[in-house]
Amino acid sequence: MAAMLRGLNQERIVFTIAVVLFVLFSVLLPGFLSAGNLLSLIQNVSILGILGVAMAIAIIGRGIDLSILSTMPVSAAWLLTLVNGGMPIGLAFVCALGFVIAVGIINGTLIAYVEIPAIFATLAMGIVVYGFGKAFMTPIDAVYTGRGESWFYAIGSGRVLGIPSPVIVFALVAAAAFLFLRTLKPGRFIYGMGDNPLAARVTGIPVRPMIILQYVIISIIALIAGIVMATALAGINTRLALSTMVYDVILVVVLGGIGLAGGKGGIRNVVVGTLLIGILLNGMTIMNLTYTVQSILKSVILLLAIVADTLLNPRDEQTAQHGDI
């Protein structure tokens, strides 16, 4: 049975399910094909996809980052706070960029040098980022964009040749991540680290510095997602850090076909997983399912995706010894 499952292409299966769901929702759910709903779907899918790219980089390198859902709203809210206080947008962006780079360096250092498992290091760091942000950076929960005609405010709400700008940002982030992972030496190092960390060290890959670079890149992508969300919704709420959205991001990555064992998958898997989860979440919202029911359904889907990942990407004894995230 495992041999038969290994022959399946999870990416194609998930894409087919996404297309079928889109068609069914279009026929059965009133308002699904309305311009307003499709715009909302595109914005939500784009933000989820950008975060999915960040999480994919973590998981491919045999890690995980639970702090991105704190890094995203806190950094974006601080940027807006600085801009609303009169600071030029460029300088405010540099400050926010410096903050997320510091978060990434701390995450990477805790994982690479202190050797705390990634799941615990990033979980704790997410709490620290949210608490630090509330205490010293953005004491109010919601920060709104000011009125302005700058290009900055069109990042999440504008259009280029009729295409919503969040989709363009998602495409650019996905393309950059694809080129990084597939064509640049650091990207190939991340695949090597994810496939076999011990062999990566033996072959001379600078594993510890690469882990730090890995988490810095993840934090920068989280800032980009935060800017897209803030400019699309005319503001951002830091309490998003307390939501369960991080599980949606993990679901996108695992369901798309990126193995939790590390070293496998790519950005195309993220795009496919994002389409399915985005359509599913939008459909459940239109059906007016309660938050509890939606959470149960997402949890079941995540569990099934993890089971499928275990069958499709079984761990051998060496992987089991070195592959815990």
Rank of each mutant, 00 (worst) to 15 (best):
A35V: 13
S46E: 00
G204P: 05
T16H: 01
A320G: 09
D65Y: 02
P30G: 08
A18P: 10
G162W: 03
I106E: 09
A232C: 07
Y144S: 14
R188Q: 12
G148M: 05
L260A: 10
F152P: 00
L184V: 08
G146K: 09
I59Q: 03
V271T: 02
V23T: 08
V23Q: 10
L281N: 15
N269Y: 08
L80E: 03
G126N: 02
M4P: 00
S75W: 14
E149W: 06
L48Y: 05
A241G: 11
R12M: 08
I116A: 09
P164G: 04
L181V: 07
A56L: 00
R147D: 04
I105C: 00
I50P: 00
L91H: 13
P209A: 05
P209R: 01
G263Q: 09
Y153G: 01
G204M: 03
I105T: 01
L79S: 05
D195L: 14
L223I: 09
I116L: 14
V103A: 09
R188A: 03
V270G: 07
F22L: 14
F22P: 10
G108F: 01
A230P: 05
L255W: 01
F120N: 04
P164K: 09
G257S: 02
T183I: 13
L255Y: 00
G133V: 04
A222F: 13
G49Y: 00
R201F: 08
G86K: 02
V103T: 11
D316W: 11
